[in-house]
Every structure is written in structure tokens, then in C-alpha cells.
Simulated assay, not measured.
Amino acid sequence: MPPPLATHLIRTGALSPAREPTPWNAPLPAPAPAASWGGAEHPAGLTRVTGPFSATAAVALATTWSIMRTGRKNRAMNRIITALRASTSTAGRPATPAEASEAVLAVRRTAWQAPVRTACLEESAAATFLLATRRLSVVWCHGIAADPVRLHAWAQTVDGGLVAEPPSTRAYTPALTIGARHQHRL
């Protein structure tokens, strides 16, 4: 027997009694993906990164943060895009997967210990800037995934390989790429 409140709500029409699911009102079988901010997928703070990029990763992150926070807040993305286009235009050669991975991991390790918010946008931009200081190029991507709508930024090699990213990044469709081969003048 339903509780008295439920009986009252059913009688008044505020609540309809439970019924068998039909094809048009059955729940969808696909579960929503769990929320993630990269901490579980990228344990960068637990890995030691040494190499040519570890010393300058902090400078690249500081540059990214200053670009984003100088000026009007609603123009921060435009400033980052302009800076990324300028930095990738000076690249001499594509970064190897190992060089690109070293740069991304060095930025993540530095960001792990930083006192300010650092997410995929800041990390990927800083890694792109870091590689550009050595005249190396990667493709910076900003993409979207649906159901639920999510945004993500990442770096990939010029030939399309993901750089220090989990395979789940392939769920994102790039909406903006900077540094791709077709964008460089030869």
C-alpha cells in the first residue's frame, strides 16, 4: 500500500502511478561519464620529470597565466589563441612524440605544485609555448564532446598522435586547431 502522501498526490494528479516502461519512455541504457578534472587520468604529481623542459616549464606556465589574467576576463581566450598562433608560427620542425611528451609532463609536474588553478587549457597552452621556445611545433587542439557537453584542450603531434593524453580524448571533436601543417607557410 502506498504511503498516505503518495496516495494523495496520485488522487490529485500531481503524481502519476508507476507503470511499465514503454519504448518511448524507457530510460536510455548509456550511463553518463563520470566527472573528471584530469587528476585520476594524469598522475603528473607522482612522476619525476627530468629533461630539457623541466627547468623552463614554470616560465611557460607563468606566461600562460599572465596572458589569461592580463586584461578583460571575457577576452582571455582570444589572448591565448593569438599568443598560440604567434608562437607556433616560429616553429622550425615538428616535435617528436618523445619531445612533446616530455614538455607536457614537465608542465603538468610544475602545475601540480602551483598555487593557482591549472587545467587542460593552461597545461596544453604552456606546453605549446614551451616547445615553441625550442622552435618545435605541436598542434594545439580545443574540442568538444557531447552528452553531456564537455570541453577539453590538448596537444597532439603534427601527424595526429595524442601527447600524454588518455584514449578517452578521442571522444572530443576538435573545434579549433592551431599549429597544424595546413596553417604553416612553407
Rank of each mutant, 00 (worst) to 15 (best):
R75H: 13
P166L: 06
Q113T: 08
L84N: 02
P97A: 02
L136I: 09
A18M: 11
C141H: 07
A119E: 02
A30T: 08
T7A: 14
S101Y: 12
T133L: 14
R109H: 12
E20C: 10
R134M: 10
L15H: 10
A86T: 00
L61R: 01
G161E: 15
S137F: 06
L176A: 08
G92Q: 09
G38V: 00
R135P: 01
L136K: 12
W154C: 03
A132P: 07
W140I: 11
T88L: 06
I178S: 03
A76P: 03
T110A: 11
A103S: 04
P29H: 11
R150Y: 00
P23W: 15
C141A: 10
T12M: 09
T12E: 13
P23E: 14
Q113L: 07
P33G: 04
S168V: 04
G143V: 07
I10F: 07
R79L: 01
H142W: 14
S168G: 07
A32D: 12
P27A: 13
I178W: 02
S168T: 09
W37C: 05
A180N: 12
L176G: 09
A44G: 05
G38S: 00
P31N: 07
V49E: 11
T88F: 12
G51S: 13
A26S: 13
P97T: 02
N74W: 14
G51D: 10
T169C: 05
W154D: 09
A44S: 04
R134V: 06
I80M: 04
A76N: 03
S87H: 07
H184R: 11
A40D: 08
P52H: 09
G38T: 01
A40G: 09
H182N: 13
V116Y: 05
R135W: 03
P43W: 06
E122P: 00
G179Q: 03
P43T: 02
A34E: 01
L5M: 13
C141F: 03
I80D: 04
V59L: 14
W65F: 00
R93E: 11
A62W: 01
R150H: 02
T157A: 08
F129R: 12
R72N: 13
V139T: 06
A57C: 11
Q113G: 08
L15A: 15
A18I: 08
L84F: 09
P97I: 01
E122H: 00
C120I: 00
L176W: 10
A34Y: 00
E102M: 14
D159L: 11
A40W: 03
P29A: 12
L121R: 01
E122C: 00
A86R: 06
L5I: 12
A125W: 01
I81S: 03
P17K: 09
T169F: 06
G45T: 05
E122Q: 01
T96H: 02
